[in-house]
Design a protein around this nucleic acid. Structure first.
Lengths: 205, 205
DNA sequence: CGAACTTATTGAACATTGTTCAATTTTTCA
DNA sequence: TGAAAAATTGAACAATGTTCAATAAGTTCG
């Protein structure tokens, strides 16, 4: 069976090679300015080969999207070690922003682009597990804050969504360039400053 | 001069015709699934004619984006009549969400899509006036809340940005389908519920 | 070893896009 | 009316995602 195993491994390796080449090109020149032929050239294979390993361009995008969430999830999960829930909540926000600003293109792909979700819908996967589990980290943390006397008379799930929305919204507005040239005093640090003020709203019993 | 005036008026009318046809098609089948030929067919002109009135597809998108902001601005400006600033702040949020959920495609174009901003950058317009003036409505309202004793020790500009981010983020997550199939209990009303909880965070002295 | 069979790879070909521009039609006005 | 100006056309182009018959490489077994 060693040959079939080796074959399978080689196939996986080539698939990974395609994925990484695609990622590099996407980061370098943007998703919509990267062609299938570009990817093929980068790995020194012909266009046709890519279609053996991926159904279409969206499939590559979805795979990248998945890998991104895996990593994102891991980064966030580490923070569950912070015992104080309010501290943890703040840390989740900081880490989220750090990820978004350091991996702009990945973040865009994960949270803004339509392609990966279209692929997901076409594939008829009715639950988006990765998104669900990341959101659960937040929901759990907010619940624990509530247990400690924060957020009295507040509903955990909608509140968690609002918090997620706030952090995501700030990142999204900056990434999608809706804050540039708008007359904001410090565009470089506006997200961090925004988070600081948001934390002040949240950290009250 | 009546002929030249009429000519100018006719040109404007045709430009508007193109714009409305484009908008209808965009709403109907999505921006990226609407072709220039589709727009031409809809208005019973040939493709070439469109290019007399618009430099390229992005120019149409930008024009639509501008018109959208004009309307958005008008809707929001009305709320400045609400004298109590905290009430006004909440009304701004509600109205923002209403606009976003009722004109999904327009909102997407205005706040998420890259094309209009790319056009803006290429045109070397260094200030995005419409975005600026809408943000100022929010900033002014937050400032007035502060004058009334809310948001003590908070910085108005970053706080305004955080508030904007929260509302935008929730809308964006829903529109871009990042909340579907995630296990949230009430996806239909999640934005409104989220806003309600956010308002509870904000409405404390 | 080598022939039959399986798998992997290729790249020309296709349909569809945004965009251009020389040719054609329509309008203007002295 | 007829020549100049303006408006409109649609075939043609380059670039894109995608397909698939043809080719090459690898595997198996007598």
């Amino acid at each position: 069976m060693s040959t079939t195993q080796r074959k399978a491994k080689e196939k996986e390796e080539l698939k990974e090679l395609i994925l990484q080449a695609a990622k590099n090109l996407f980061v370098e020149k943007g998703v919509e300015h990267t062609t299938m032929r570009n990817i093929a050239d980068a790995i020194q294979y012909s266009v046709g080969t890519i279609y053996v390993y991926y159904k279409d361009k969206n499939a590559i995008l979805y795979d990248l999207h998945s890998k991104g969430f895996q990593e994102f999830n891991n980064v966030m999960k580490v923070l569950m070690a912070v015992s104080d829930p309010m501290e943890r909540l703040k840390a989740l926000g900081r880490t989220y922003i750090k990820f978004a600003t350091e991996h702009t293109d990945m973040y865009d792909l994960m949270f803004n682009m339509k392609a990966p979700i279209e692929f997901l819908c076409n594939a008829e996967l009715d639950i988006w597990h990765q998104g669900k589990s990341t959101f659960n980290l937040l929901r759990t943390t907010v619940q624990e804050c509530k247990d400690q006397g924060y957020f009295q008379h507040q509903d955990v799930e909608p509140l968690s969504f609002a918090i997620w929305g706030c952090v995501h919204g700030m990142c999204s507005l900056v990434i999608r360039q809706r804050v540039h040239n708008i007359g904001v005093s410090s565009p470089e640090t506006i997200i961090e400053d925004g988070l600081e003020e948001f934390n002040r709203l949240v950290d009250r019993k």
